[in-house]
Design a protein around this nucleic acid. Structure first.
Lengths: 255, 255
DNA sequence: TCAAAAGTGTTGCGATTACACCCATGC
DNA sequence: GCATGGGTGTAATCGCAACACTTTTGA
């Protein structure tokens, strides 16, 4: 095969799709957008778009994330993260079934983003076409899709991609400090615990959880103040420490 | 953007590259091929090739693996694995830096394959252009590259891909039964231990290792016989059990 | 007989669990 | 006062590291 002959290899379209997760009202939620055109017109789908001609895959994902949420992606390998509200962003997996898009051959490089609960709606998107939906409803449509939404599955193979992203997040918070990516810059131990409980769908012992996270060097650093925004006794505020790997890991209770 | 207009999105070439690992002579080794044409002519590279127009990504990786090694890939999700010598095959990550191939825009979906030590050289490849090389030499060229090889780095970004694949293998044998993919169909506990020692580059206590693996339900099932091929007292032969996840995991000693 | 590899028993230690219990605030 | 969530103390238990020790072969 001549390496310079474009006809010697088949051309592909390459896209990035985003699994953007957050924790809202004690539930793990994903960002979905309503499709305005065929195929799957009117159905919900993961945000995404084409990779540009001279754009790296991670840069394309960060650009799509900023367009949809206004978040600045924080690449874990980047020594100087962008200013402003940050989100964790990492490559998830690549999906290239020849039949996955009926229009043409599309290979999609899915990325996983973890974001804190955003108080304001996303800028640059109108409320009818983008929303946070609990992943449980997105992955089990028969469970109901909120009040006013019909229980239809996600477009394309996005249910599979979302399931893979959720599974990645569930396992990764076990052995890394990634759960702090779901929290605001300053947070309490209780708020961090509620993140674990929402992502795993289990209840954790608050006392043992507190000892575990405060006793792991580099996981949390005191921010200095306290807050009563959760009610009860004032809780210390913490910031995420420098450690990325948790050793020993946080143990996920048996099913 | 009109979804049907080919000029609306840039065309990419999509390839699969393979990180094929095995354990030979107590060292973790990777399969590399010598490039016969520019760019990087004469340099070693990971095996790989273009994805065909109607081929799934995993199928392309399995095809390339069979072409290079004669191994039948065993997709972990496949309920009826192909007959013959099997190898574990899974997607690793996707590399799409615009500058990674000087000829054109190439997105490469790297896959990781784990194979037992193959007694015969690979069929369909001549010995001068394909070889097993210790990953330590491939990733640290100054350490020497065997007797007759100059210490040159791998072509393209393949050193990075190889490092990612090695890291995936090292962490995955911690919490899964994947180490058995490096062993022949029937193997002893000592042989399995030497796999862990080679992949991690550490020494493990034979007594505690034995208790650990034989005490984990579903990890190993007795094959019935014994062997003295490692010398010393005859050792029981085992086959890989059905379990894929190890809980609690095998603990990797501190560096 | 000796070296080498396979196994078993035992002890101490560190981490996790499942609690009892106290603390500080808003209402 | 009382409910609510925050935080500390403690004892039972589990799993692992670090050995001593026995078994079974080949040379």
């Amino acid at each position: 095969m001549s390496p310079y002959d474009p006809s010697a290899y088949p051309p592909f379209a390459v896209t990035v799709d985003l699994v953007v997760l957050t924790v809202r009202r004690h539930a793990l939620c994903a960002l979905v957008v309503r499709r305005g055109e065929p195929p799957f017109q009117g159905r919900w789908a993961l945000p995404g778009g084409f990779v540009r001609a001279d754009e790296d895959l991670g840069a394309a994902a960060a650009r799509e994330l900023a367009e949809e949420t206004g978040l600045c992606a924080h690449d874990p390998g980047d020594p100087a993260p962008a200013p402003g509200a940050g989100a964790h962003l990492e490559q998830l997996a690549t999906y290239g079934d020849p039949e996955r898009d009926p229009r043409m051959r599309v290979v999609s490089v899915a990325h996983l983003a973890l974001a804190p609960d955003l108080p304001a709606p996303r800028p640059g998107g109108d409320a009818n076409s983008v929303r946070w939906a609990p992943v449980e409803e997105l992955l089990s449509p028969e469970a109901g899709f909120g009040g006013d939404e019909p229980p239809v599955p996600l477009a394309f193979d996005h249910a599979r991609i979302l399931a893979d992203g959720v599974e990645r997040a569930r396992s990764k918070i076990e052995y890394s400090s990634l759960a702090t990516a779901f929290c605001p810059p300053e947070f309490t131990v209780g708020e961090l615990r509620r993140v674990y409980e929402a992502v795993w769908g289990v209840a954790l012992d608050p006392r043992n959880f507190h000892r575990k996270v405060t006793g792991t060097p580099g996981f949390l650093v005191p921010a200095g103040g306290t807050t009563t925004r959760q009610g009860g006794r004032p809780a210390q505020l913490f910031r995420a420490g420098g450690a990325t790997l948790l050793n020993p890991p946080m143990l996920r209770p048996e099913v």
